[in-house]
């Protein structure tokens, strides 16, 4: 399907100052494009979770929003470190967040499960030592 609009946001490791800026911009742009209601709400939740995951867990990476005529796609790709045990990571309540993140109220272990629950399609590829790529699609009805 022809892509209509795409934009990429770099996200730095442990940058809590600007954390949430990318997902806020994604939300704003989708509203300008006329995406609303339930889809917007789900993209909002998932994009915030995935952005915060990049800040908390990755060595840095980028978040790409692509809008197709029939779907919104979010791809998060980081440069490491990758997830050691993917099955565990997908469990609700499991978190490897460090002290700094936990002290800021993160690390409830709901990030990945929340993304999966809110996206219509969810795919995660990870190799320990290399990095993680998460692809989420949200259908526009």
């Amino acid at each position: 399907m022809e892509e209509l609009f795409s934009t990429t946001y770099p996200v730095a490791q442990a940058d809590y100052v600007t954390a949430g800026k990318a997902s806020a911009d994604i939300k704003r742009r989708l509203k300008q494009l006329g995406v609303g209601g339930d889809v917007l709400r789900r993209v909002a939740v998932a994009s915030y979770e995935v952005e915060l995951n990049l800040v908390i867990h990755s060595l840095g990476g980028e978040l790409t929003l692509t809008v197709f005529p029939d779907a919104v796609q979010l791809v998060s790709a980081d440069v490491g470190p990758g997830i050691r045990d993917l099955a565990m990571a997908m469990r609700e309540g499991y978190s490897t967040a460090n002290e700094e993140a936990r002290s800021l109220g993160f690390g409830a272990g709901m990030g990945l499960p929340n993304m999966k629950r809110n996206a219509d399609e969810f795919d995660i590829q990870s190799e320990y030592g290399k990095g993680t790529t998460i692809t989420m699609r949200f259908r526009l009805s």
Binding site: L4, K31, Q32, L33, G34, V67, P69
Partner: peptide, 9 residues
Amino acid sequence: ALDESMTEA
């Protein structure tokens, strides 16, 4: 929205 048609938006 910027336009009624999403393509145009």
